[in-house]
Amino acid sequence: MERIFLSRLIITIFLFISSNIIFGQHNYYVFKKEGNPYFKENKKVERGEPFLKTDILIVKKKDTVILVNELGEIFKISEPMSYSFSEIKLYKHKLEEDSFTRKYFKYVWKQFTNQNKRKLESGVVYREKRDIKLKYPIDSAKVYSPEVQFSWNNKTESKEVYFFLKDLEANRTIKLRLNGNSIMLYLDNYLLNSNTEYQWWVDTTPFPDLTQIEFHNLNILDKKEYQKLEEETAVLIKTFKILGFTEEEIKEAICVDYKFCR
């Protein structure tokens, strides 16, 4: 009896070790990311974070995540959908098909035909505005949605920013310290209320000079106002559809031009 137990124990230990060696190769880490991909339960995707077996990766339009495993293999994910741990191996980045010889003769041909890249030199120094640019919702947007994603571009040195949301009716401002470039707020009748006007801005300091800030106005619509605006834009939407524009393009155009964002 003891012998059988011992042999089973040895086999179990052996299987455990070997499975660890085999499956150990499939630890994924985030190598690069673009946009705002996230793991389920709103865990942000950051460079260097592991992709755990229990994680679900959510990639939206314009998002890209590059993962790397222990062997240094690269997995590129850019299609907007959800990915489980086991699916990642299907997205291995393939090697370029151009062969060594073909690349070499392409290079020789380029040299012979003098197809070198033009190099335009200009004697100037760039001074771009190193500040925070508010992205969405655009200024004076009228939004009808159960949640609002606020996003901005941070071109400052500071990684940490302060998000401010001012309720114009209640004259109450909330302030949140954040590390990323976006925040999602829900219509919970506390932070965000329908039929209310807001101002929002992002700053690197917790106490910015309120006379200097650049803010966006935001109007959260209630159902009645939304329906009214829907009726007003119905003809326009129909025309756009006849012209062959997609739903997304129409939505974007109306949001940019008429500030009505659904």
Partner: peptide, 17 residues
């Protein structure tokens, strides 16, 4: 130097160690 400069044999792997 042409080998590297023209990426004649670029590997898609990275060194994860």
């Amino acid at each position: 130097d042409v080998y590297y400069a023209e990426k004649l044999s670029e590997t898609k792997k990275i060194d994860s160690s």
